[in-house]
Write a protein that binds this DNA or RNA. Structure first.
Lengths: 155, 155
DNA sequence: TTGACAAATAAGTATTAATCCTATTTAATA
DNA sequence: TATTAAATAGGATTAATACTTATTTGTCAA
């Protein structure tokens, strides 16, 4: 384990204690798997990945754990289009591009977008906890394959 | 039926023909139910609503029809957090606020947000078909009820 | 107007995601 | 090391979505 990972796990331990959560091997494994992921995996995907090293871990535990992590706000749930729920390890301010063909989600950053002023009738009426620009379309790979095809949301 | 509805249905007919879709009573009913909805209903909700006047209509047909409409881009699928897929009758440029407690989705408009400049590395690489600001938080009603509670994504 | 044909539907079935239930195990604390 | 509440595994359940097939129905051309 390198220094960076150690710091991440230290922080994880702190956060769990702060929220009265026990540090279990399952939770460590789920947290580590998501945090080192470069994607936006579903509970099932994380489970499939973990089962090799941790044969007894159940899907329910993985799913429950991810939801718990989202509740204490150390990870996020990704906005989707009705497909299985997916999770985001990255809690920094960022935005999402969704490929409607291959379902990939690509993060992007933009300093200008952080400065967006919201309408007063929104900020005064509601409590805002998250703000994200969501783009849909076709990634470079898929727009070459099917330039004129409309979104097939079932794929 | 008033003039406005007639115009809407005329346009619906045109769009179906343009995409080689047959005009069926079921499609008319689904389209009308969604377009007159002030919410962002799921397939199940639309089906429950229609079944009173149209007892034989099946949930599968409602769901399939809504997905077809989204494919030809006369309605939209709403970005959600892993709950059942929901649909949006409103294809005008607008943005969404999600209440994490009561699950309500509230539309809002903002002329400034339409002017958002996207980073070049995004617009050059991908084909963008949709752009939306997604806010999460607690609506006026729910933030009064539970001001300090973190998101419970299972509710 | 009618007949032919492709498309759409209903209803039942299958699949998948998500959650619940309960006996057992385990981390935390004294 | 013993106690206790929390967490887990694994099976069962529920709910959403998609598939399959026989039947019905719009559409279009004759």
């Amino acid at each position: 384990m390198n220094d960076k990972q150690e710091i991440i796990l230290d922080r994880f331990t702190q956060l769990c204690k702060a929220h009265g959560l026990k540090i279990t091997p399952q939770r460590m494994a789920v947290y580590n798997a998501l945090k080192t992921s470069k994607e936006h995996p579903s509970a099932d995907k994380i489970h499939k990945q973990l089962v090799c090293d941790f044969p007894s871990i159940s899907l329910d535990t993985v799913n429950r754990t991810l939801i718990t992590f989202a509740r204490i706000q150390i990870i996020d749930v990704v906005e989707g289009q009705g497909e299985p729920r997916r999770f985001d390890p990255n809690r920094e301010d960022h935005h999402h591009f969704y490929c409607l063909s291959c379902n990939k989600i690509i993060d992007f950053h933009d300093p200008d977008l952080g400065q967006i002023q919201l309408p007063k009738e929104i900020t005064c009426t509601f409590t805002i906890t998250g703000k994200r620009l969501c783009l849909t379309g076709y990634c470079d790979h898929c727009s070459h394959q099917a330039p004129a095809r409309a979104a097939d949301i079932t794929k």
